[in-house]
Simulated assay, not measured.
Amino acid sequence: MSGEMSVDVAAVETLAAALAVAAGRTAGGDPAAPIAAAAAALPGSDTAAVLVSLSVGLSGAVGDAAARLQEMAATARRSAAGYLAADDATAARLRGEL
């Protein structure tokens, strides 16, 4: 092992972009709508009550997933920026600028 570390910053930036797209798609969907429609077709039934509860829980879970994906995208963007800053600082030190 050489002790050298290498990071493909472009790959980290690509990951960040893909995670942001996934977050947007996840947040933009409405998976609970068909469940709510099924519940509306069965007014007053126990099944309708269960379906309503399910749609509320599902909406919350999807919202949480979208938020987590967005957090992962932001973390990847910060990581890429940090790697670039470290590279720039190291290069400046090697040039005797710092």
Rank of each mutant, 00 (worst) to 15 (best):
P34W: 00
R78S: 13
R78F: 04
L15R: 10
T90W: 07
A73T: 10
V62P: 01
S6G: 11
G24H: 01
R78A: 12
G60T: 05
S79G: 06
E97R: 09
A20L: 08
L51R: 01
G28W: 00
L15Y: 04
A89V: 10
E4V: 15
M72R: 10
V12I: 15
L19Y: 07
A80L: 05
A65C: 07
S79C: 07
A61M: 05
L69N: 03
D8G: 05
R77D: 15
S53C: 07
Q70M: 13
S79D: 11
A18G: 13
S45W: 07
S2H: 07
D8C: 06
L54D: 15
A33P: 01
P34I: 05
G96E: 10
G96T: 08
A92R: 08
R25I: 01
A85Q: 13
A81V: 08
L42C: 00
A10T: 12
A32H: 02
S55F: 05
A66G: 13
R77A: 15
E71M: 06
V50H: 08
A27Q: 09
S45C: 09
V56N: 11
P31Q: 08
D87T: 10
D8K: 05
V56A: 15
A65G: 00
D87Y: 09
A66L: 02
A49G: 13
S55R: 14
E97D: 14
A76L: 04
L84D: 15
A74Q: 12
G3K: 06
L58E: 11
R95Y: 11
A89D: 13
G3W: 03
A61C: 00
L98G: 14
A18T: 09
I35R: 01
P43D: 04
L54Q: 14
A91H: 09
P43F: 02
L15T: 08
V56P: 00
A66I: 02
S2D: 14
A37G: 10
A18L: 08
G82S: 14
A73H: 09
S45D: 08
A86I: 11
V12H: 03
G57L: 08
P31H: 05
A22I: 04
L58T: 07
A36P: 00
T26N: 06
A80M: 02
T90Q: 10
G82L: 06
G3R: 03
